[in-house]
Amino acid sequence: MKYLVMVQGAQADYEAMKGKGSGHSPAWSKQDLQAMFAHMNAINDDLSESGEMIDGQGLVEPAKTRHVSVDKDGRPVITDGPYGETKEVLAGYWVLDCESLERVTEIAVRVAKCPVPAGSTDYPVVIRQIDESGGSDL
Score class of each variant (00 low, 15 high):
residue 124 P to M: 05
residue 89 V to Q: 04
residue 112 A to F: 15
residue 59 L to Q: 02
residue 87 K to D: 14
residue 77 V to P: 02
residue 3 Y to V: 03
residue 105 T to C: 10
residue 14 Y to K: 02
residue 120 S to E: 13
residue 114 C to A: 12
residue 89 V to I: 11
residue 16 A to F: 05
residue 13 D to V: 00
residue 136 S to T: 13
residue 69 S to G: 13
residue 64 K to I: 06
residue 62 P to F: 10
residue 49 E to A: 11
residue 56 G to A: 11
residue 41 N to F: 04
residue 53 M to L: 15
residue 30 K to W: 12
residue 82 P to G: 02
residue 109 V to S: 07
residue 115 P to F: 03
residue 70 V to R: 11
residue 116 V to G: 04
residue 52 E to T: 15
residue 120 S to H: 14
residue 117 P to C: 03
residue 36 M to E: 06
residue 27 A to Q: 03
residue 81 G to T: 01
residue 1 M to Q: 10
residue 65 T to M: 04
residue 99 E to V: 13
residue 5 V to C: 01
residue 12 A to I: 00
residue 78 I to L: 14
residue 71 D to C: 14
residue 106 E to P: 11
residue 41 N to C: 03
residue 106 E to I: 10
residue 72 K to C: 10
residue 109 V to F: 13
residue 100 S to D: 08
residue 34 Q to M: 15
residue 6 M to C: 06
residue 118 A to L: 08
residue 43 I to S: 02
residue 20 K to F: 09
residue 75 R to W: 02
residue 34 Q to C: 09
residue 102 E to S: 07
residue 66 R to D: 00
residue 109 V to I: 15
residue 121 T to Y: 10
residue 66 R to N: 00
residue 99 E to D: 13
residue 60 V to P: 09
residue 27 A to H: 03
residue 11 Q to S: 11
residue 127 I to E: 03
residue 52 E to M: 14
residue 116 V to K: 09
residue 15 E to F: 00
residue 10 A to K: 14
residue 31 Q to A: 11
residue 44 N to H: 13
residue 52 E to Q: 15
residue 123 Y to H: 15
residue 23 G to W: 00
residue 32 D to P: 03
residue 120 S to I: 11
residue 20 K to Y: 05
residue 32 D to G: 05
residue 79 T to Q: 04
residue 52 E to F: 09
residue 44 N to S: 10
residue 115 P to A: 01
residue 17 M to H: 08
residue 135 G to W: 15
residue 96 L to E: 03
residue 103 R to T: 08
residue 130 I to H: 11
residue 138 L to Y: 08
residue 89 V to H: 12
residue 107 I to T: 04
residue 94 W to G: 07
residue 118 A to P: 07
residue 15 E to C: 00
residue 87 K to R: 15
residue 75 R to V: 04
residue 78 I to H: 07
residue 10 A to Y: 11
residue 35 A to D: 06
residue 7 V to L: 07
residue 136 S to V: 15
residue 46 D to P: 12
residue 132 E to Y: 05
residue 26 P to D: 00
residue 12 A to Y: 00
residue 38 A to M: 11
residue 133 S to Q: 09
residue 82 P to H: 02
residue 8 Q to H: 08
residue 1 M to I: 12
residue 132 E to H: 05
residue 54 I to R: 05
residue 131 D to K: 06
residue 128 R to Q: 01
residue 97 D to H: 12
residue 93 Y to H: 04
residue 34 Q to P: 06
residue 129 Q to A: 08
residue 108 A to H: 13
residue 92 G to E: 02
residue 33 L to N: 09
residue 108 A to R: 14
residue 29 S to F: 07
residue 11 Q to L: 08
residue 42 A to R: 07
residue 57 Q to T: 01
residue 24 H to D: 01
residue 81 G to R: 05
residue 14 Y to E: 03
residue 22 S to I: 06
residue 14 Y to R: 04
residue 107 I to Q: 10
residue 76 P to I: 05
residue 33 L to W: 09
residue 68 V to C: 10
residue 97 D to W: 09
residue 94 W to V: 11
residue 119 G to D: 05
residue 23 G to C: 01
residue 23 G to R: 00
residue 99 E to R: 15
residue 34 Q to K: 14
residue 70 V to N: 13
residue 9 G to Y: 07
residue 37 F to N: 13
residue 50 S to G: 14
residue 126 V to I: 07
residue 69 S to V: 12
residue 82 P to Y: 01
residue 11 Q to H: 05
residue 29 S to Q: 09
residue 78 I to C: 15
residue 114 C to Y: 06
residue 17 M to E: 10
